[in-house]
Simulated assay, not measured.
Amino acid sequence: MALATNTQTTYQTVGIREDLSNVVSRIDITEVAFQGNIGKSKATQRYHEWQTQALASANPANAALEGDITAATASTPRVRVGNRTQIFKKVGAVSDTARAVDIAGIDDELDEQKILKGLELRRDVEAALLQNAASVVGSDSTAPRMAGMESWLTSNVSRGTSGANGGFSGGTVAAPTDGTQRAFTQAQLDTVMQSVYSNGGKPTLLFLGPAQKTAFSAFTGIAVNRVNNDGNSQVTIVGGADVYLSNFGKLTVVPTIFSRARSALIIDPKMVKKATLRPMFTENLAKQGDATPFHVIEESTLEVVNEKAHGIIADLS
Rank of each mutant, 00 (worst) to 15 (best):
Glu120Gly: 14
Leu121Met: 14
Glu126Asn: 10
Ala127Cys: 15
Ala127Arg: 15
Ala128Cys: 06
Leu129Tyr: 15
Leu129Val: 07
Leu130Pro: 14
Ala134Pro: 12
Ala134His: 11
Ser135Leu: 09
Val137Ala: 11
Val137Glu: 12
Val137Gly: 12
Asp140Tyr: 04
Ser141Lys: 13
Ala143Gln: 08
Ala143Phe: 08
Arg145Gly: 12
Met146Pro: 09
Gly148Asn: 05
Gly148Met: 01
Met149Gly: 03
Met149Lys: 00
Met149Asp: 04
Trp152Arg: 04
Leu153Asn: 01
Ser155His: 12
Ser162Glu: 09
Gly163Arg: 01
Gly163Asp: 04
Ala164Glu: 10
Asn165Thr: 14
Gly166Met: 03
Gly166Lys: 03
Gly167Ile: 01
Phe168Asn: 03
Ser169Asp: 10
Gly170His: 01
Gly170Asp: 09
Gly170Ile: 01
Gly171Val: 02
Gly171Lys: 00
Thr172Lys: 03
Val173Lys: 02
Val173Phe: 08
Ala175Glu: 07
Pro176Leu: 03
Asp178Thr: 13
Gly179Arg: 00
Arg182Met: 02
Arg182Leu: 02
Ala183Leu: 10
Thr185Phe: 03
Thr185Gln: 05
Gln186Val: 01
Ala187Cys: 02
Ala187Trp: 00
Gln188Pro: 11
Gln188Val: 01
Gln188Trp: 03
Leu189Phe: 08
Val192Ala: 02
Val192His: 04
Val192Ile: 05
Gln194Trp: 07
Gln194Tyr: 11
Ser195Tyr: 08
Asn199Tyr: 12
Lys202Tyr: 12
Thr204Asn: 02
Thr204Trp: 11
Leu206Gln: 05
Phe207Glu: 04
Phe207Asn: 11
Phe207Val: 07
Phe207Gln: 02
Gly209Met: 12
Gly209His: 15
Pro210Thr: 13
Pro210Met: 01
Ala211His: 13
Ala211Arg: 10
Ala211Ile: 11
Thr214Asn: 04
Thr214Asp: 12
Ala215Gly: 02
Phe216Met: 10
Ala218Pro: 10
Thr220Gly: 00
Gly221Cys: 03
Ala223His: 12
Asn225Lys: 15
Asn225Asp: 14
Asn225His: 13
Arg226Ile: 08
Arg226Phe: 10
Asn228Ile: 13
Gly231Lys: 00
Gly231Tyr: 09
Asn232Gly: 15
Gln234Asp: 15
Thr236His: 07
Ile237Ser: 13
Gly239Cys: 00
Gly239His: 00
Ala241Glu: 02
Ala241Gly: 07
Val243Ser: 07
Val243Cys: 00
Val243Trp: 03
Val243Arg: 09
Tyr244Lys: 02
Ser246Lys: 05
Ser246Phe: 11
Ser246Met: 03
Asn247Trp: 06
Asn247Val: 05
Gly249Ala: 07
Lys250Ile: 09
Lys250Ser: 15
Lys250Pro: 10
Thr252Leu: 08
Val253Thr: 06
Val253Lys: 09
Ile257Pro: 12
Ile257Glu: 14
Phe258Asp: 15
Phe258His: 15
Phe258Asn: 14
